[in-house]
């Protein structure tokens, strides 16, 4: 059974809710990104999402683009994502999912990437630009190694796709909460609620809602209808403005939205 989905259902059963935090590997350096993730785990994140910097991140807004571009400029190499995971693993046992665009994985070798995910201590991967229709090789590699494969659903997805993408995901299915690319939204979209309920009606796979969450109230609200809140931009922005201290403070602040 997926460690992540077990955690999500335990947190839901206890009325606590779940906070999932994203931070890019290698930003601003390999060691500092590991320290950032460790602090996020120690201060309230239940699941960590480790981003792989990529040259063409079409799902990301400007804040994350700038951070990952910095990581690449600083010389980030793909295998270092595993160094980050191992480093984090030395300190905490919070579940870790990698978030990667597809080409770096393809280039590395899908099976080899899956093997190294397991060996470094990660629980699975979110693939923003790989739909399950194109994902047979990854699904097979992940299942053979007990890794979670998290796909996306969007407000524009048909009911049929919502069901298929949820059923073909493990751990959870990622509900993209607004139509927009990742970035803060003052008001969380009504669309997210509708989307999460469509997932609930059609599949037993849990769903976490991401994109646009930046306040404790939004964390609470999302957890009232979904299995977890995913936060990225708000954490990266906090780090950009005030380093590790600001990131730690932001994590604690958002964790107040948990029951």
């Amino acid at each position: 059974m997926s460690k992540v989905s077990a955690l999500l259902s335990a947190n839901r059963a206890s009325g606590r809710g779940t906070l999932i935090g994203y931070f890019p590997a290698g930003y601003p350096s390999v060691e500092e990104s590991a320290q950032a993730l460790i602090s996020m785990a120690k201060n309230g994140c239940d699941v960590l999402e480790v981003g792989v910097p990529y040259s063409d991140p079409v799902m990301d807004g400007l804040v994350i683009q700038q951070a990952t571009e910095k990581a690449l400029e600083a010389g980030f190499k793909l295998p270092q994502v595993f160094d980050v995971i191992k480093r984090v693993r030395q300190e905490i046992d919070t579940p870790i999912l990698v978030m990667s665009y597809w080409n770096p994985v393809l280039r590395y070798g899908v099976d080899r990437f899956a093997t190294d995910l397991v060996d470094s201590g990660a629980q699975g991967m979110i693939t923003p630009d790989l739909i399950p229709d194109e994902g047979a090789e990854w699904i097979q590699a992940a299942e053979s190694k007990d890794l979670d494969h998290v796909f996306l659903v969007a407000p524009s997805s048909s009911d049929e796709r919502v069901k298929t993408n949820a059923d073909l995901s493990s751990g959870f299915v990622y509900s993209v909460s607004t139509m927009g690319i990742t970035g803060e939204r003052a008001q969380l979209d009504q669309l997210a609620r509708g989307l999460a309920s469509r997932v609930k009606q059609s599949s037993t796979t849990p769903t976490c809602v991401g994109v646009g969450i930046s306040t404790a109230d939004q964390v609470r609200e999302v957890n009232s209808y979904a299995d977890g809140a995913i936060v990225g931009t708000a954490f990266v922005k906090a780090y950009q403005t005030g380093g590790l201290d600001a990131l730690t403070a932001k994590t604690r602040e958002l964790a107040l939205g948990l029951g």
Binding site: V58, M59, W102, P128, D129, L130, I131, D133, E134, F151, L152, V153, A154, P155, S156, S157, S158, R161, N165, V176, M179
Partner: peptide
Amino acid sequence: GGRFVPEPLIAALD
């Protein structure tokens, strides 16, 4: 070929 794009675009491609 194929469709290696984020899910939000699939409906528009369809």
